[in-house]
Design a binder for these strands. Sequence first.
RNA 1: GCCCCCAUAGCUCAACGGAUAGAGCAACAGCCUUCUAAGCUGAAGAUCUAGGUUCGAUUCCUGGUGGGGGUACCA
Length: 573
Amino acid sequence: MKELLKSKILEAISKIGSEKENWASLNMAELNFEMEYPRDEKFGDWTTNLAMSLAGKLKMNPLEVAGEIVDFLKAENISKVEKIEVIAPGYINFYLSKEYFKKEIENILTLDEKWGETNELSDKTYIFEHSSPNLFKPFHVGHLVNNAIGESLARVIKKSGAQVVTLSFPSDISPGIAKTVWAIKEKGWEDEMNIQKIGEAYVYGTKEYKENETVKAAIDSINKKLYLKDESQELEIYKKGQALSLDYFKEITQRLGSSFDGLIFESESEEVGKEIVNEHTPQIFRESNGAIIFPGSEYGLFDNVFINSQGFGTYLTKDIGLLKIKFDKFKFDKSITITDVEQKEHFRLVKKAGELVNKEWADKSEYIQHGRLTFSGEKISSRLGNVPLAQDLIEKVKERILNKIDGQDFPVEEKNEIAEKVAIGALKYSILKCGAGRNIIFDFEKATAFEGDTGPYLQYALVRANSILNNAKELETEDSLALEERKGETPLVEKMILKFPSVINNSLVDYSPHHLASYLFKLSSEFSSFYAQTKILDTANPDFRNNLALVRAMQITLRNGLELLGMETLRRM
RNA sequence: GCCCCCAUAGCUCAACGGAUAGAGCAACAGCCUUCUAAGCUGAAGAUCUAGGUUCGAUUCCUGGUGGGGGUACCA
């Protein structure tokens, strides 16, 4: 439809150009304009601001320009276009016919779970890396942000037609881990080790490392043993803690709705990366103060250490090694890595150094960032141990929801399932509704609320739609998808449903699920209004079948949309 | 110091350079014998500052103020 309107407009302009000199001077090839959805449905179903941008070149009033184009279009009598309007300051607005909407709704019902799919990225293979944990550190709200956005983007990319391989890159070797191992040994927690204790040990070890010289030396020596895999008591503690942390990571990400096609460990990439760095020293990397650095300052960046003076690869080297592993292991068109914005500069350096080693590495790799989470004014830091853990948050929300549904007449098991899905939905949505690059101020009350612009509101709207369709089964006998033209006005919600694929594309282009989140909220809100003023299950209503089809299309859209956000849907709540 | 990002209502967030800057929360006034009130309806409330570019600037450019990130052996 969009393309049809565009071509008609171009045709109009060239036709007018054959009659009028000033129009003829326009360069048709350079005429670049878009048909858009108006910001408000009252401005029609499609709009363009073309006339305003042409007005300057034509030395005419925008309204006159629009008027001439529209006069031509009206004479054409374009099918499925009911009305064309010129509105100040110079918009051309198109109103589509009921027949058009009827056809579109029928199409959605047929597509069902495929509704929203596009071929934007068809035939492409993407590697998508997210939710990389630091083993031996707790999975906290920061990881929740990365997981929520990463998981959703991976799904959006898939919906756009690409094959997606999801990866995670656990940090299983680092000085931070040595601190934790030291603390576990020091506290004698080796046998009673669990996730909770590991978290406490990390905080304790970090503090002691900073404050106590002897401890610092001891931890440095443990670090060496771990990197070199020297048989020792520390290595045993390390192995045990690593296994515990990894199990925990798998458990929590699964609970959040993520699964990974592969894990690549830093201990593995450190070795690969070190080889690359050594091979390219001194051509790309160089020695400095006993370490090997990359002179980023020569490329407008900054110098930083790739192999430290003890001979161990840093985070930078690990990411260089990871590049090689990815390219050796997979065939793909693009690799996307999403991390916290604090790693933005780090990846600029990785990309530059990587480019010098192998240009394809940089060309096919994209590093994107999400915003930082600040927590009631202060910076959250797992080093300080002042971070709310993902698991604790989920449990707290669950508890509130269980209280709320206490009086309802469901089996206990179902209540639990509802509370789990609603809790995770609430947390995820509170993250996803913000632009992905923006910092988020974490507010427990707001992140766990279930009224207004929240995840549970969306889930609730879907439950309502499901419930209507369920009840309708008793009324509905005909099973055909074919609809008749609507008798009354086309409801706004029906028009909004059609925008779904274009919104998915916005989220893809900006790498930000918030477009989808806010669209789904507006859609649910419009549906709720419709629901409040229209008795849908009313067979006497001449639009009964249309309304029912609308609810079904709404259900499909919302369900597919929530899936893209990584939020689970419910039968009732 | 240098490099990068951000500033919208009391709070938390929206707005391809375009129409009257949209929501939610909080506060105020209403609506449950009728498809689930986690809902609906109504009224109130905002673009940090000084310039510039543009037919048109919350959006682009420059300066200022305020905040965040990075800046050699953490990730």
